[in-house]
């Protein structure tokens, strides 16, 4: 029984020592997600359009992009673009892109953006494809152009369909951001690992678990509320 208490125990001294570090890690986690997810959305739109109604070449490019980023582990992508890019730092410097790869945080944000763009593009493409063909045909009958049909008819309906899976993607990004810790980013996971290697106290991982769970639960509820509002409107 003592083992069980030790397992779930709470040590106030440990908390006082490491709470500030974990909080600052949490802030890094939130920044990573807050930067990558919207950028990924912005990048996902043209990719989804390329898949939805692009020519053969743009479609193939979009398929390649989404296939690569959805078919390989985020960890492998992160290593590839972080340590792999370092091999080409001379070339990257000469084209003025090294800053993007030099800092672990911006490099992680870049990889996360590309990764979530692929997933969000798939969500958006699926949502656009789910809008009944009759809707577009009606738009054409009214004499609207392609862009107008997309913007006025397809897009608003697709967004409503995409809202829930996009919320799931946001939650997946919060969880996946913990992987940034393997390339020296001190996010919540990284701060926990540092604190663990300093104190060897397993409790720290349990705190991190509670923080992640709370974060995910808050996002889930906020998103549900958003969704309800949007549906009524």
């Amino acid at each position: 029984m003592g083992e069980v208490f030790a397992f779930i125990g709470f040590d106030p001294e440990l908390f006082a020592r490491y709470a500030p570090a974990l909080l600052s890690g949490l802030w890094t986690t939130l920044s990573l997600v807050a930067i990558s997810t919207p950028l990924g959305f912005a990048l996902g739109i043209p990719i989804a359009l390329a898949r939805y109604q692009g020519g053969a070449t743009t479609n193939a490019l979009a398929v390649g992009f989404t296939g690569f980023f959805r078919g390989t582990p985020l960890l492998a992508q992160l290593f590839l673009l972080y340590y792999g890019a370092a091999e080409f730092n001379g070339a990257l410097k000469s084209v003025g892109l090294w800053w993007l790869f030099r800092d672990a945080f911006t490099c992680a944000a870049l990889v996360f953006t590309l990764n979530t763009a692929a997933y969000q593009a798939e969500i958006l493409r699926g949502a656009m494809a789910a809008v009944p063909a009759g809707q577009t045909e009606a738009g054409m009958a009214l004499g609207l152009g392609r862009a107008m049909i997309n913007r006025l008819i397809v897009w608003p309906q697709a967004m409503r369909l995409a809202l829930r899976p996009l919320g799931n993607e946001l939650i997946l990004m919060i969880k996946a951001s913990s992987i940034a810790s393997v390339i020296t980013v001190v996010d919540l996971m990284g701060a926990t690992k540092r604190a663990f290697s300093g104190s060897l106290s397993f409790e720290l991982y349990l705190w991190a678990a509670l923080i992640y769970l709370a974060l995910v639960e808050i996002v889930r509820r906020v998103w549900n509320a958003l969704e309800r509002r949007w549906r009524i409107a």
């Binding site: 083992e3 069980v4 969880k175 913990s178 992987i179 810790s181 397993f202 991982y205 769970l213 639960e217």
Partner: peptide, 19 residues
């Protein structure tokens, strides 16, 4: 579903020996 998979792996790997 809510825990990062990376954290779940750490929890099992370092937690299981205690239990």
């Amino acid at each position: 579903r809510g825990l990062p998979e990376l954290l779940t792996i750490f929890l099992v790997y370092f937690g299981a020996p205690r239990l």
